[in-house]
Design a protein around this nucleic acid. Structure first.
Lengths: 218, 218
DNA sequence: CAAGTCCGAAAACCCGTCTTGTCAGATGGG
DNA sequence: CCCATCTGACAAGACGGGTTTTCGGACTTG
């Protein structure tokens, strides 16, 4: 494990002419998309540790040769996948919170929180990737995970402090509250997604909304 | 990875006579203890993925030959270590809660909660092992992790329900509350333990105590 | 149609490490 | 004192999988 890891970048494409009606960039993009989907499927169901490059390529219908044309290492592909999964959640949260502008925090916060979790609710592999498989892979991935978490904390702290300034909510340690909320959400959603017969997701969302308000608004 | 993993049990000791003034069982016990300490050190600082049997043995001052006399696989040793770390926390929590019998839940709950977290506060490697490195290792370890968590949830649910029956606290979904508390604690303590310059641990404990009361008592 | 790319499949390379086995010396029991 | 057991050190053995390379054929372009 942790093979070389020297900065051997994905081999650059030299020429680049059209093929099968598509430009080189288009073909690359499609292969990358297929690999990402394959990696999502394999890692999300079997876990990163048990995932081999060949499994990903088999699932994606892409040759290992092209895998290494696009990614320098297996870990790089996982990083790409992790970024895709988390960026989607982050985007949704920020969008939902922004759309609620003008309305009370007691509505906006749970809305944004549920929007953040939405992808994990509907996509078990995504939940596993974002909450479980990321951890303990390598120092580099840990850094990426923590930096993503930090950006969440920053967003919460900034919006929370703004609401405090507006007199909408009481001040508090937003870093603590954000960490608690994120940690709780990880555990709860992963448990929900894992259980054979989970309770109704409507109840789950309500409980989560209440939790977000308890920690961030009340 | 995930080598054979068939149930090749640690090789049985055939005879077993005394040596260097110690019985066979004593020698085995000491080696196991040293290996556990070595594994704790190596895994807790470098992570399970980067840990090799030889590193553990080097740290422990035990030969690989004896390692495989005591453990069938590297993963088995990690299981042993994980069990040691979590059992310690669990034991403390139950003891602390029991000692508070008769006093109000608003005191007993945070006391037990802080007691549960105590080892993680003072022992960074332990926190890393219990909260990070366990995850994503193998289906077997995931099962062990979840079953430990389940035993925590059961304890909380049982004691919570009893308190409800006594009219001490309001009823609630204890599984949800327990998951939220555990998840939040993982995130917070690990963050605390990781930060270069963490805030005073007294503040941290106070905030955690308040959180436990918010989720389980209030 | 000729030369040059690009393609997927498969083999080969390579390296680490888990795991097993060997061995010379130390120790204990009879 | 003799021999069996135990010990730590060390050397293979095996194996899996990440990474690279090869190869024959498909496609483009001029």
């Amino acid at each position: 494990m942790v093979r070389a890891a020297v900065a051997a970048p994905a081999r650059p494409r030299v020429a680049g002419r059209s093929y099968a009606g598509r430009s080189a960039a288009e073909r690359d993009a499609e292969r990358r998309a297929r690999l990402l989907a394959g990696a999502r499927q394999v890692i999300g169901s079997e876990g990163y540790a048990a995932t081999t490059v060949e499994k990903i390529c088999g699932e994606a219908g892409v040759s290992t040769r092209h895998f290494y044309l696009l990614y320098a290492t297996k870990e790089d592909a996982f990083v790409d996948l992790y970024r895709e999964v988390t960026a989607e959640s982050y985007r949704r949260a920020v969008a939902a919170f922004g759309e609620g502008e003008g309305r009370p925090m007691a509505e906006r916060v749970p809305e944004a929180f549920i929007a953040y979790l939405e992808p994990m609710f509907t996509d078990r592999p995504a939940a596993r990737i974002a909450f479980i498989e990321v951890m303990g892979v390598s120092p580099r991935l840990e850094e990426i995970r923590l930096s993503f978490r930090e950006s969440l904390i920053e967003f919460i702290t900034a919006e929370g402090s703004a609401a405090v300034a507006r007199g909408e909510i009481a001040d508090r340690d937003f870093r603590f509250a954000a960490l608690a909320l994120i940690g709780a959400a990880n555990a709860i959603v992963y448990d929900w997604v894992t259980r054979p017969k989970p309770p109704a997701d409507r109840d789950m969302r309500l409980a989560l909304a209440r939790l977000a308000n308890t920690l961030l608004v009340a």
